[in-house]
Each structure stands twice: as C-alpha cells, then as structure tokens.
C-alpha cells in the first residue's frame, strides 16, 4: 500500500483518535478546568481550543478541523439561557443544527461531529462527554472524508 492511499500509520493497532474540542471560555472551559482540579480522569485524546463564546465559532472552524485530519470535533458551550453574552449559544445552536445536518447529508459520519453543553460546574459531565466522544470516534476509525491528503503525498515524494 502506498502512502497515497491511507494516511501513513494511522490504521495501525495502537491508533488513538485525535479529537479537537472547541469550547467556550465561560462554561465548558471552566468545566474542563473543574474536571482537572477534581482529578476526574478522561481520555487524553482531546485537544482543547478556547474561544470566547460558541457564538464566535465560525462553522468553518469545524470543517477546517476535519480537513486538517482530526478524527472528531467536539463543540461545547454554556447551556441555553446561561450564555455569558446572553444569546451567543442560541445563535450557535441554529448554526450547528444546520451544519451538522449538512455534514451528515454529504456523508460525513454522524459521530465525527458532536455538539453539547457543559456548564462550569459540570466537571463530571465534561469527563463523561469526552469519554463518550472518544469511544464514538474510536468505533468509527480514522477519518478519511474531507481530509486533505496531499501533505502525506508530499512526504512520500520527499522520501
């Protein structure tokens, strides 16, 4: 098998998914912090990007993350009604409802993208979410759709 077909070494035995979590500063990031302070264990597969509010997340972030080769994307913010900026998460909810539906429609697996709410007091829930998302993505295997593969081809040529 050439490097062009599959991203090198990703389907091997010890494969661990890479999950990008885009979370809001006021709720989920604090929730993740609480999970840390409380020493709650959760899988280390998640890379966290902190943004001021879920309303600030350009839907393009999610698509770019998928294109860059992440196996899963998690977006999380304050529960509806608890937004620091009053309604940022409500705008985000409309954007993500349509974004997820459209991603599913073109054939991206449902488990690749996850949207949820975790408040600052829900450290336990944050760990639970990350665990569940990691399991879901693991079951799906490495991402192949929408992923930019040219980089791997370049590596192959360089070799």
């Amino acid at each position: 098998m050439s490097h062009h077909d599959k991203p090198a070494g990703r389907k091997s035995e010890g494969w661990e998914p890479k999950i990008v979590a885009i979370v809001c500063n006021w709720c989920t990031y604090a929730g993740a912090d609480l999970a840390g302070i409380s020493r709650i264990q959760y899988p280390p597969n998640v890379r966290i990007i902190r943004v001021p509010c879920t309303g600030r997340i350009n839907p393009f972030y999610v698509v770019k993350v998928l294109q860059a080769g992440a196996d899963g994307v998690l977006v999380s913010g304050c529960h509806p009604g608890e937004c620091h900026y009053i309604s940022g998460n409500l705008s985000a909810r409309r954007k993500f409802a349509t974004l997820k539906s459209f991603l599913n429609y073109i054939g991206i697996e449902d488990g690749r993208t996850t949207f949820t709410w975790v408040s600052a007091s829900e450290g336990e829930r944050f760990a639970q979410v990350v665990k569940a998302v990691t399991e879901r993505v693991k079951a799906l295997g490495p991402a192949t759709k929408l992923v930019k593969k040219l980089r791997d081809a370049d590596v192959a040529v360089a070799k």
């Binding site: 509806p80 909810r93 993500f96 409802a97 639970q128 569940a132």
Partner: peptide, 10 residues
C-alpha cells in the same frame, strides 16, 4: 429551538 442534535451522554 429544536436541539435533538445536542449530544447528551447519560
């Protein structure tokens, strides 16, 4: 607004 797509473990 509808939020059936929101993930809710447990």
């Amino acid at each position: 607004d509808k939020e059936d797509f929101i993930f809710n473990p447990g």
